[in-house]
Simulated scan of single mutants.
Amino acid sequence: MHRKNKTKKATFVVIGILLGILFLFPIFILMLNSFKNQRGIFMNVLGFPDAKTFTLKNYVQAFQSLDYVTSFMNSLVITVVSTALIMLVSSMAAWVLVRYKTKVSSVIFMLFAAAMLIPFQCVMLPLMSLGSALHMINRVGLVIMYVGFGTSMSIIMFHGFIKNVPEELEEAATIDGCNSIQLFFIIVVPLLKTIMITVAILNVMWIWNDYLLPSLVINKPGWQTLPLKTYLFFGQFSKRWDLASAGLMLCIIPIVIFYLACQKYIVKGVTEGAIK
């Protein structure tokens, strides 16, 4: 029996390693090509750069072409503001749906769950028409749209976690004179630290890397995020794969650093939120 468990565990480890290699291989190739000139990429896209093809100029030119500082700040502001609003709205909504157990709250929760099944492409054209009519085709409108699309998943995650928060703590605080706002921000929010970090990580990664929605809403000079600016490397008649590879690496690096700093909270938050 012990040998069988060891074999099963080893099999899972091997499968995990193979899946890791499969998912990381495209990023590895992208990194290699970011250090090659155009000729080196066309000669051998999968190979390592040699003395004739190796160059660091790709990163310098990509940094300048991307207008990196401005684009980075656009991405950072939009991502941080959108994520903060998603966390605030979702946590409050989930808390109310858990604590006020009625048929209406159950229906509302099911509507949020069903909203996750609707692809963005199905609502893209009506959303743009509505946004134009309400003069929301700008950065503020983009943030509001992100909040709308991000709350469904976040509410579901908060909902599962808040079920594990003892109601006795809230009842004791109510007896001590806390109103609903004080009860939520003073008693409940500190207990949601783990799931909040998990929700923040997932939303930051999604919003930072998003291309489609910003391309529809804020694709104007000076407003563009980093993913939008990488489109400049792909022209109608020529494609600068060398600069594009370096530019994409510059876009990836900040979010990879953020993920590595917070990754331990993802599994913990999802697991704790799923246990009831």
Score class of each variant (00 low, 15 high):
183 L>R: 07
186 I>W: 06
128 M>T: 13
75 S>I: 05
124 M>T: 14
77 V>R: 07
70 T>R: 14
120 F>E: 13
137 I>E: 13
112 F>A: 08
164 N>A: 14
63 F>Q: 09
66 L>T: 01
60 V>R: 15
119 P>M: 11
115 A>Y: 05
108 I>V: 12
64 Q>L: 13
175 I>M: 15
152 S>E: 10
90 S>T: 01
67 D>G: 10
75 S>G: 11
85 L>T: 01
181 I>C: 11
147 V>A: 03
113 A>W: 12
140 V>R: 09
146 Y>N: 03
176 D>L: 14
124 M>W: 11
131 G>W: 01
138 N>G: 07
150 G>K: 09
91 S>A: 13
137 I>N: 12
161 F>K: 01
172 A>F: 10
181 I>R: 03
123 V>D: 07
173 A>E: 02
161 F>Q: 07
144 I>E: 03
169 L>D: 12
62 A>C: 01
83 T>A: 02
73 M>I: 10
147 V>Q: 00
172 A>S: 12
152 S>N: 11
101 K>F: 08
75 S>Q: 05
146 Y>M: 02
162 I>R: 09
91 S>G: 07
79 T>W: 00
64 Q>H: 13
66 L>E: 00
126 P>E: 08
121 Q>A: 04
97 L>F: 04
162 I>D: 06
178 C>P: 02
107 V>T: 06
139 R>N: 06
96 V>H: 03
147 V>Y: 02
